[in-house]
Design a protein around this nucleic acid. Sequence first.
DNA 1: GCTAAGTGCTACATTGATGTGGCAGATACT
DNA 2: AGTATCTGCCACATCAATGTAGCACTTAGC
Lengths: 162, 162
Amino acid sequence: MLAADPGASMAAIAAEAGVDRSTVYRRFDSREALLAAIHRARLTAIEEAIEDARLREAPVAVALHRYVENIITVNRTWPVDLTRMLADDTVHARRDAAVREVDAFLERATDEGLLRPGLPEGWAGALLPQLMHLVSRQSAELSPGRAADVVVDTFLHGTGAP
Amino acid sequence: MLAADPGASMAAIAAEAGVDRSTVYRRFDSREALLAAIHRARLTAIEEAIEDARLREAPVAVALHRYVENIITVNRTWPVDLTRMLADDTVHARRDAAVREVDAFLERATDEGLLRPGLPEGWAGALLPQLMHLVSRQSAELSPGRAADVVVDTFLHGTGAP
DNA sequence: GCTAAGTGCTACATTGATGTGGCAGATACT
DNA sequence: AGTATCTGCCACATCAATGTAGCACTTAGC
């Protein structure tokens, strides 16, 4: 709901959840507070996904697939865009830390020969989230594991003939 | 502006353009009319991009690169999301026609051995626009030609080591 | 049976955005 | 000079969404 339209009204959100608008206001002081709670939940899930994938120590191919699979699940559970919450300093800082963690991993993946060197600055780091986001909403019928297969395969080898 | 926040107010849009809010209302009857005009302009540019690339006849590798380069320019000129205008029937129909044209091209590209067969249904057709959109706003410093190089290379071969 | 907590529904004040109309000044064209 | 057009500024009505408050009803636990 908030994924399709981040500007959705509280009435629409409440209707989607099958409760009255006033009930939502009983649990969250304001619309801002509701969105902040959702974004915090997503951030926490992202941090757990990163930790579970052991981006610093695990073999890069294994860590990549595990990270992708985890994030696809996060995307499906909390399909909201954190970009619109960068006003909040805490959210901003936690998001930055997660991005830095993934960037460092991609650098390690390049050093260890999984990724091609010489790519444009930040290209891999921008591409990977887009692929995960795409498969999350495009191919809802795929299990997280199969969806991760597609993302990793496309990320590493593209869609061209071998 | 409308790219960053599709829900931007007329006051914000007018301020961005350096004119008064009332001046915008003199040129467009309503907010809807303004958005419709922008979307029509984007659609027209997309149709020209497809025609110029000769997706039906040109060699697939040539047509792909030319199409990508054209759309990157369109994305930078009219950076708005057509998905939010599907209420308008005319927009919907024109967009569908363009999507079908590209899908048919991707099928031809598969038949002629440029793309790998056996990809998930609709994956290439969803991936390509995402890549073009990503490079359009991510790498503003690249010329359309160089940006298209990156997109086509990533689309066909990914970012993995050879 | 009684209480406490949660929920739905309604009414209300407030705010921000939309859209309209009028007026005055600047620019350009004849 | 005189006129037409465009613009900025201001005031105003309208509407949708936010947030608050009160009341009645249901459910669960003691």
